[in-house]
């Protein structure tokens, strides 16, 4: 057993070039990471500079923007008659979102409980892909579903009380959209709960229901809350469904049978619209985008922070 030639020669590669290329690679990878920061800066810069065109206008006041209850940027060609109060758009957004949450939170949570606590491996292997397929359905398809199926059915069952475009059908479609997200994030949170807790509960004579609802869910609560928040911000930012199904009239009401233009719906409508570029009305879309961005950003931020806290607690 003689020493192999390659070890006798001991001709090793010089490490100098390696060190240099390593540096270059690290720098280029760091640049990749910087890109994400640049994107955030880009978004904020764009929103600020473009919405300045709106907020600088004499027709607009900050307090009016935040408190007025009429939004007629698309309806009023004449700036003097235009009303810029974000409240109706917010109300539309929250109406749709609320309906979506009423659908997706309980359904998503209970499905998650089922998946993590009860379902056999075989059922899981069917149910999980199904949920993933729903998660992968393009939102424009769900929008189509909303105007083609949900809205007519609602009108049929309510004897015409719902208008063609209404907050409910959009909300239901958005709810379907959020369901897989709520479900998979909550399930992750519940699976992270250590087995020992469940064993402890069963050991005390708890039924499966009591174990899951009184032990597992509270233990995973922060994760579940963060799932809710993330789904909430997803619902707020959802665009195509509301553009197709929620209607184009900003309304300040609680009636879910009525049209409800949302912030995203307004942005799409304004982009598609014939309103002239450069007008205050046009720039108002950036003011709406700022509001939208701020709300979703805060939601996600809080959701992320809660999620991180929770993750650390079991590691």
């Amino acid at each position: 057993m003689t020493l192999p030639k390659s070890l006798q020669n001991r001709e090793f590669r010089s490490t100098r070039w390696g060190v240099l290329s390593e540096r270059l690679i690290v720098i280029s990878l760091a640049l990749c990471a910087t890109a994400t920061v640049l994107i955030t800066i880009g978004i904020i810069y764009m929103l600020i500079t473009q919405s300045a065109g709106f907020f600088r206008s004499d027709a607009v006041t900050m307090s009016g923007f935040l408190t007025d209850t009429e939004w007629t940027a698309l309806q009023s060609k004449d700036l003097a008659q235009a009303k810029f109060g974000i409240m109706p758009l917010l109300s539309g957004t929250f109406r749709v979102t609320l309906i979506a949450m009423i659908i997706s939170l309980p359904l998503g949570l209970i499905t998650a409980i089922y998946l993590s606590e009860f379902a056999s491996a075989k059922i899981r292997s069917w149910l999980k892909p199904t949920l993933e397929i729903i998660a992968g359905v393009p939102t424009v398809v769900l929008g189509y579903f909303a105007i083609l199926v949900i809205s007519p059915s609602l009108q049929l069952f309510s004897d015409g009380a719902f208008s063609t475009f209404n907050a409910t059908s959009a909300g239901i479609a958005v709810g379907i959209l959020c369901l897989p997200m709520v479900c998979s994030l909550s399930e992750d949170a519940m699976r992270a709960v250590p087995r020992s807790l469940r064993e402890g509960a069963y050991g005390l004579g708890c039924t499966p229901f009591e174990t899951s609802v009184k032990v597992v869910v509270p233990a995973a609560l922060s994760g579940i809350i963060s799932a809710f928040l993330l789904a909430f911000s997803r619902a707020i930012g959802e665009t195509m469904v509301v553009a197709l199904a929620a209607g184009t009239l900003p309304t300040m009401t609680l009636d879910p049978t009525q049209q409800a233009q949302t912030m995203t719906g307004f942005i799409v409508e304004m982009i598609k619209s014939e309103s002239e570029y450069g007008t205050v009305q046009y720039y108002s879309l950036y003011a709406v985008a700022v509001t939208l961005f701020t709300i979703t950003f805060l939601m996600t931020l809080v959701g992320q922070i809660i999620r991180r806290r929770f993750k650390e607690s079991y590691q």
Binding site: P4, K5, S6, R13
Partner: peptide, 13 residues
């Protein structure tokens, strides 16, 4: 990673 070796040298090694 470290050496320039031929296929046979590598096999041997």
């Amino acid at each position: 990673l470290h050496m320039k070796t031929s296929k046979s040298e590598l096999d041997e090694l």
